[in-house]
Amino acid sequence: MNNFFNGYINSLKNLLDQIDVSILEEIISTLERTSEKKSKVYVVGNGGSSATASHMANDLGIGLRRRDIRNINIVSLGDNSAVTSAIANDIGFENIFYMQLKGILQPDDVIIAISCSGNSSNITKAIEYAKEVGAKVIGVTGFDGGKLKELSDVNFHVDAPKGEYGLVEDVHMILDHMIYSYYIEKGKCNVR
């Protein structure tokens, strides 16, 4: 049992050591431009990635706004089960994010797409639409990155072995907390 846990911890440490901080800087710059332009950030994901999307919307939205640190207009498109289940039932699961973006997504908006495989049809359809509109795409991927990695303007990639969902999702959640913690620390520096 100890061998398993030590192995998992070591694998997670190795993945964290591989993080390219210049990608974090690109993500922060993109979020700041979006905030300054009063544009919107949409976050999408399935399963555990949907939970990370919700957590990210909470942290980077209300979490920063209530502290008067940064006003990021951010929403997780998986949070309304009535909307997502109606779209899935009526016109197909592959449309649950695309249909919420259709006609309202603007070129200055940003999509943060979180997907371990990068190949989920509902994610890729929304991203293809975002590219048509001219919105910026931040991909958060794992394994080989799939189609999402190819379509992303900025890609935060976790190069874990295929099937290691726990490790990839762990690092994706840490990404959210690194961005949030960066802003919290920056907010402390601006307090006089």
Rank of each mutant, 00 (worst) to 15 (best):
M1R: 04
M1G: 00
F4P: 01
Y8M: 06
I9L: 15
L12I: 15
L12E: 12
K13D: 13
L15E: 13
D17H: 00
D17P: 01
Q18L: 12
D20Q: 07
D20L: 05
V21S: 08
S22N: 11
E25G: 15
E25N: 11
I27G: 03
I27S: 04
T30D: 00
L31D: 04
E32Y: 03
R33N: 05
T34D: 04
T34G: 02
S35K: 14
E36K: 15
K37S: 01
K37H: 06
G45W: 10
G47T: 10
S49Q: 08
S50D: 14
S50T: 07
S50G: 09
A51H: 12
S54A: 00
H55Y: 10
M56V: 00
M56H: 07
A57S: 07
A57N: 05
A57L: 02
D59E: 14
D59P: 08
D59N: 11
D59S: 13
D59M: 15
R65P: 02
D68L: 05
D68G: 04
D68F: 15
I69N: 15
I69T: 15
I74H: 15
I74K: 12
I74V: 14
S76N: 11
S76Y: 03
D79I: 14
D79T: 14
N80H: 12
N80I: 03
V83K: 13
V83T: 14
V83I: 15
S85V: 12
I87F: 13
A88P: 11
D90H: 14
G92R: 11
N95W: 15
I96P: 10
I96R: 13
I96A: 12
F97M: 04
Y98G: 05
Q100N: 09
L105G: 03
P107Q: 10
P107F: 01
V110M: 01
I112E: 05
A113R: 09
A113Q: 09
I114R: 02
S117L: 01
G118A: 01
G118M: 01
G118L: 04
S120D: 04
N122E: 06
I123G: 04
I123Y: 05
I123P: 04
I123M: 08
K125E: 14
I127C: 06
I127M: 01
I127T: 12
Y129W: 12
V133Y: 14
K136F: 06
V137E: 04
V137N: 02
V140Y: 07
T141Y: 13
D144F: 07
D144E: 11
D144C: 00
G145E: 08
G146H: 06
L148T: 10
L148E: 10
L148K: 09
S152I: 11
D153R: 13
N155P: 06
F156M: 05
H157E: 05
H157M: 00
V158D: 14
V158T: 15
V158H: 12
D159G: 10
D159M: 11
P161I: 03
K162R: 11
K162P: 02
E164V: 00
Y165M: 12
Y165N: 08
G166S: 08
G166V: 10
G166A: 06
V168L: 10
H172N: 00
H172K: 00
H172Q: 04
I174E: 08
D176I: 06
H177Q: 13
I179S: 02
Y180P: 02
Y180E: 05
S181C: 05
K186W: 07
G187L: 07
K188P: 06
C189N: 12
C189Y: 13
N190E: 14
